[in-house]
Design a protein around this nucleic acid. Sequence first.
DNA 1: ACCTGAACACCGTTCAAGT
DNA 2: ACCTGAACACCGTTCAAGT
Lengths: 222, 222
Amino acid sequence: MGKMRADAVRNRRLLLDAAAAEFAEHGTEVSIARIAARAGIGKGTVFRHFATKEQLMAAIFGDQLDRLSDAGEALMGSADPGGALLEFMAGAIELQCADRSFCQAVTANTRQDPQVRAASDRLVAVADALTAHARRAGAVRDDATGHDVVLLINGVSQATAPLGDAVPGIWRRYLGLVFDGLRPEAAHPLPVPSPRSLAPESAPMPGSASVPAPDSDPVPPD
Amino acid sequence: MGKMRADAVRNRRLLLDAAAAEFAEHGTEVSIARIAARAGIGKGTVFRHFATKEQLMAAIFGDQLDRLSDAGEALMGSADPGGALLEFMAGAIELQCADRSFCQAVTANTRQDPQVRAASDRLVAVADALTAHARRAGAVRDDATGHDVVLLINGVSQATAPLGDAVPGIWRRYLGLVFDGLRPEAAHPLPVPSPRSLAPESAPMPGSASVPAPDSDPVPPD
DNA sequence: ACCTGAACACCGTTCAAGT
DNA sequence: ACCTGAACACCGTTCAAGT
């Protein structure tokens, strides 16, 4: 890890910055050639640092999740836990809506990536802490969890982001609606318990090599 | 419209059925070659019926929106308007989660398509009627609209669908949470009014030629 | 070790040749 | 009028040749 050549670490940084900017502006369908050109490196160099375009997406997606976690941690000591939770959700949604690739990354298979999984776990932990504070302050219902908060953030972002710049602050309306659902006043019992992990597949047992999806082949053999 | 050759209408139906099935099973990234093979037609024939893969997606997406509208209309005479609205949302989310392409279609530029726009408008109208009934019955808050309901359906679907089959009925939890936000009990004033249209761009003024969509015809004239 | 661009494979789209 | 598969363009990925 620490024994990378100087030009390699420099190129890696240039690549990550260029890719993040291109993805944010144009979505994940930008070509690798364009990203490499922006970074000032060769196409082949991209694949020396990331085996696949999806892994590059995962690295950037993970970084952004970490930024959300940082923002959440900064709010953890607040005197108004309910307001802090609302502010956390607002900041996360706003950031996601400003980045065209964010919602695409969530839908993609990026969740399988270990870095993304780790960043996602941290974000859930931060959300859990904020939610617990708000719950103790009576601002949110007893059965609300950090998983719920993260998932609701995603839902509001994904549903409002494609509306684009047509109605700039429209996500605030739906954050308001969803947050009202988190309040204790209207709480009705929920039919299903909160999930343990946001990952699609169960965590691999220690000792079992994580084998990728068996039927990932688009064309079936004959 | 009515003067298509017999084999053309037959092929069009085969194509739509095959594409719908493939998209539902594997998402929108399935190749045109695979869809054509399943339909038993040549690749080129696909592009005779739809100028682009995205237009094919739009046609199928529009059909599915119409199915949601049908289901909603069947619930309109219910004696329990609140329950009918909840059931409408549940059915829509369940259908979306069963179809891998649904969420991808929402994110894509499919919204520009006139057929999709029409189907979307109808769905909003149905949701508006159901919401108005539920509102009058005191089951939902005064400021909730059909747009809100459709958008919340999308949010729950998009946020829970990628979790996949790991937690089969997890969407029921988030529908419950979101629906609690629609109840009058916890209603706090919302900072932004409900949008008029779900389309990303504003409707063109009468007399101004809408530039971006050059050809609304599924079969281009020659 | 790492960088690079030419070469490869795949897929959406076009089109000349068929009926 | 419509169908078809070969041909084209584009893009992700690989690799032999460079430093």
